[in-house]
Design a protein around this nucleic acid. Sequence first.
DNA 1: TTATATACTTGCGAAATGTAAGTAACTATT
DNA 2: AATAGTTACTTACATTTCGCAAGTATATAA
Lengths: 393, 393
Amino acid sequence: MKTLLSITPSRMRSINQTAVMEYIRIHKGASRAVIANELNLSLPSVVRIIDDLIEKRFVKFSGDFEHSGGRKRPLVEFDAENNISIGLEVGDGMIRGYVIDLAANTLQAEHCTFPANDPDQALSAVFKVIESLYTFVTASSRVFRGISIAVPGVTDHRTGEVAVIPGLGWENLPLQAMIEARFPVPVAVENDSNAAALGEMWFGRGDGIYNLALIHLRKGLGVGFIVDGAIYRGPNNAAGELGHIVLSSNDFASVHQDYGPVEQAIAGVGLEQQAKNKLRHMLSPAALNAISFQDLFEDYFAQEKWSVEIVRNFVETLAKVIIIISTVMDTEKIVLAGEIMGPAEPLIDSIRQKIYQNIVIEKSKIDSMASILGGAVALIQRQMDYSILKSVN
Amino acid sequence: MKTLLSITPSRMRSINQTAVMEYIRIHKGASRAVIANELNLSLPSVVRIIDDLIEKRFVKFSGDFEHSGGRKRPLVEFDAENNISIGLEVGDGMIRGYVIDLAANTLQAEHCTFPANDPDQALSAVFKVIESLYTFVTASSRVFRGISIAVPGVTDHRTGEVAVIPGLGWENLPLQAMIEARFPVPVAVENDSNAAALGEMWFGRGDGIYNLALIHLRKGLGVGFIVDGAIYRGPNNAAGELGHIVLSSNDFASVHQDYGPVEQAIAGVGLEQQAKNKLRHMLSPAALNAISFQDLFEDYFAQEKWSVEIVRNFVETLAKVIIIISTVMDTEKIVLAGEIMGPAEPLIDSIRQKIYQNIVIEKSKIDSMASILGGAVALIQRQMDYSILKSVN
DNA sequence: TTATATACTTGCGAAATGTAAGTAACTATT
DNA sequence: AATAGTTACTTACATTTCGCAAGTATATAA
């Protein structure tokens, strides 16, 4: 049975340290005096904490000053460029790996494909990508914070195990432990939609926001929630797995298929299936096989009739999902991301018009890098013994 | 812009104190040695904290002991009977008030009706009820913790203001301040569905659970969420206000009516409206006017045909709402409560059958007292400077 | 140059937790 | 019935952290 956590003096320090660093990061620089004031900490405490943070190379003096009547306040800023990490994303037949810094710059990239349904080769590809990026980070004079991997499946972030990835064959894989055994640095394993939401909060549309939902439209549907600045996972790590909700009464029974009814309407596999059904009698088998969701949206914008019903249903269903998420969780913003949102971006206005409520909807700003960047955030949040203190009062 | 909170030594103490008290409450008694072990605190600290808690009369030695090989451990338990409070619930034309203890016993009751659409008389009724219960609590030798009010509308729990209550006429009413001005004790103002969820967690179906959703079916639809043991409100205090979600594509436009499409299908006002429409040509105007949701469900179980479609839609829509809530939030349990669930209780099995997923659904155990009991919990959580510390690691 | 204002430093005090040694209480064994 | 062994508790003191207050540094403005 889970209980509340207790605090020791050293944990108190790490919580305060995190609060100070978050303040600096979010405000894009601040002076020690202001931080002390805003966080209700004494100036000596803030000074001690920032000395710590400077020594750990999380923050630095920017060289700028602020005047406020007396002695100038030197500004402290997040040392984004000097913190680097390796970030991987496991995708459809491809591992994408990058060395990035915390200013969202890509310093090095390395991709590797692997054959479908071969879990071992996929794993080898992971190690191959890390290996080739590792030489770069060890040669760098910047601070290397670790390795993150975003995977399109259910993960346990505490153990770093991958429970299952549909269509890849990984099951109960202790991925974190395996990588840590070979590379002596912190490793974070995270669901890709969760990671993307985290990335969006730090680097994308979540700027200055602590609560958002990211709807990730790829082969399947994933939703990542940020609540009070951290991933909301739910007691079973299943929050936002809403491909299988039921909107139409006809769908109660179809809920246990691989891709649920909502996923069928708005995610890649379902859209392509629907397109192929529509075009079955109009195309050669080879042409039919090559049909993708890009074709669907291109033809729709070219006013091809066959696509209208599918796209209308796409817009309506996505609008419903947005209303549901926004209403249930009371998020500040809904961010749309994933491959589908490339060709579907012009539809966002139609979606907004469908929705009578006042919901902030935006397309991801960091797109394909969201999961990678979010992985880096996850690493930092761990490194900092990042904790969230919330009062009910 | 909201930032993380900082901690001082005295706040550290109050957090640890809360953790210890929660441990004792949830485990229905525990020894100091075990608590120290489980909460990762040293024994001296736990002893000091429990001395505090005993002095404040939150816990007491039960007189029982536990043997574990050496000196016996005296057990400490939550002092439920010695903590009392006044709890009010603002309902449809009626204020219900009680003196209760933290073992969920009712010690005194006082109800008062007021005419519809008269905000001033409603307010007088509140004060009248409190007044008549106040003599009881001041005469008692138990510890009186304060006054709670659960209202069927949007509240700001920090300021204790009622933003709006549909159909009552209270708007931007500083209810907490008004009551505190007259009675020198802590006052908590809370949305009734949120309070009911809190009550359910401490005293009802939430026993041993930290995450649940309570679906409150009364005139309207309200949902209260408990996440990690505290009310989840969302950044705009609007989480769970989901009368206005859209399931059917026909409903996009009807979303701004007083009662939204989902509310129409499963809450009191909508059910009665539907029943009256069906029976319009079958009953006298007087009889038609008297039709209530009880009649609807009674006639359904008596196999009256007119009710079938309405009830089938009720079951399906409620099933969808349950799936949505459970999937989005990943709750451990869904609790059904509110007047509607009295006559509708036999339908719970049909709802379960509709839902193919494995979701735990139960009817409230504390029924009409849920909001009252939850109000008492809210008072205690405040008194304790109840804080939640969550680590992302 | 001086007054004023704000920022920072230093030294000490306060509040909390933790450690370790000693004491108390209980069971079981001889 | 004495004693050994085990666990619980108490006490005294160390440690960590934050906070306060006085003194020092650095800026602007008159």
